[in-house]
Simulated assay, not measured.
Amino acid sequence: MGNPVFILLKKDFLLELRQQHTFFGILLYVASTIFVLYLAMGQPESTVYNGIFWMIQLFVCVNAVAKSFLQESRGRMLYFFSITSPVSFIIAKLIYSTVVMLLMVLLSLILFRILLGNPIEHYLKFIGIACLGGISLSLVFTLMAAIAAKAQQNAAIMAILGFPLIIPQLLLLIRLSKSAFGEVFREGALLQISALLIGLDILVIVLAIVLFPFLWKD
């Protein structure tokens, strides 16, 4: 018998391959949104570019991560309950959502550079911050999706619960990514913001591991 987390991850990716319409639907959403922005404003200056990037990642995350739990039927959840532990299940969902969100972030970066130009001075730094942000967003919304899945599969609940929690992270990410556009920060500020974001990510993971078993038993 293999590692249960790996087996659950394999299951999620195989389902994604079989139900490609969902994944490609999100890709189309990302591409069409960025293309419409290009038609509307051409190549924006750095502040607008930065803000638009993070707003798109927020809404892409809601669409991409919501299906991780909301696609699971009650019968399937009862089956998982009988064959695996809640901790293995939630860890597999967190990893799966993180991988999907990282793919969306990288796609967004490519399309932004092609269509909206490149006002970024330190592109590698921005890529790193974007990946950190994608991980942060996916972790929060995966936990919210787990809660929403127990509330009659209502995706609106995920958004209502998630947005108040995600706003501080978004503000930190927007502030942190300004350094990639050439803004000067006082010494040590970037390290403090990055450490705070990583700390919040760890807190979300711990909360998911602690709280999900109680949802699992419901």
Rank of each mutant, 00 (worst) to 15 (best):
L9K: 11
K10E: 12
K11M: 13
F13I: 00
R18N: 11
R18H: 15
R18S: 15
Q20V: 04
Q20N: 08
F23A: 13
F23N: 08
F24V: 15
L27H: 00
L28W: 12
L28Q: 01
V30D: 07
A31I: 12
I34N: 09
V36W: 13
V36H: 02
P44C: 13
S46D: 08
S46N: 00
Y49H: 15
N50C: 10
N50S: 12
N50E: 05
G51P: 02
W54A: 02
W54S: 11
M55Y: 04
M55I: 07
Q57P: 04
Q57F: 10
F59K: 14
C61E: 06
N63E: 11
A64Q: 15
A64F: 00
K67I: 12
F69A: 01
F69K: 02
L70P: 10
E72I: 12
M77Y: 15
M77A: 11
F80S: 14
F80T: 09
I83L: 14
T84S: 07
T84P: 07
V87N: 14
S88Y: 07
F89E: 03
F89S: 02
I90S: 06
I91D: 05
I95A: 05
I95M: 12
Y96D: 02
Y96L: 00
V99M: 14
V99L: 02
V99S: 07
L103K: 10
L103E: 13
M104I: 04
L106H: 00
L106C: 15
L106Q: 05
I110H: 08
L111P: 10
R113K: 10
I114Y: 14
L116G: 01
Y123H: 14
K125L: 14
F126N: 07
A130V: 12
G134H: 06
F141Q: 03
F141M: 06
F141P: 03
L143N: 07
L143Q: 01
M144H: 13
M144A: 09
A145D: 02
A146W: 13
A146M: 11
A148W: 14
K150I: 05
Q152L: 12
A155H: 09
I157L: 14
A159K: 02
I160Q: 08
L161H: 03
F163N: 00
I166W: 11
I167T: 05
P168F: 04
L173F: 01
L176W: 03
S177A: 11
K178C: 02
S179D: 01
S179P: 07
F181C: 01
G182F: 08
G182Y: 09
G182S: 06
G182N: 01
R186I: 10
L191W: 00
Q192W: 08
Q192D: 12
S194C: 08
A195P: 03
L196I: 11
L196T: 15
L197P: 04
I198S: 01
G199V: 15
L200V: 04
D201V: 09
L203T: 03
I205G: 08
L207T: 06
A208C: 00
A208M: 05
V210C: 05
F212E: 03
F212C: 10
F214A: 09
F214Q: 05
L215S: 03
L215K: 14
W216C: 00
D218Y: 03
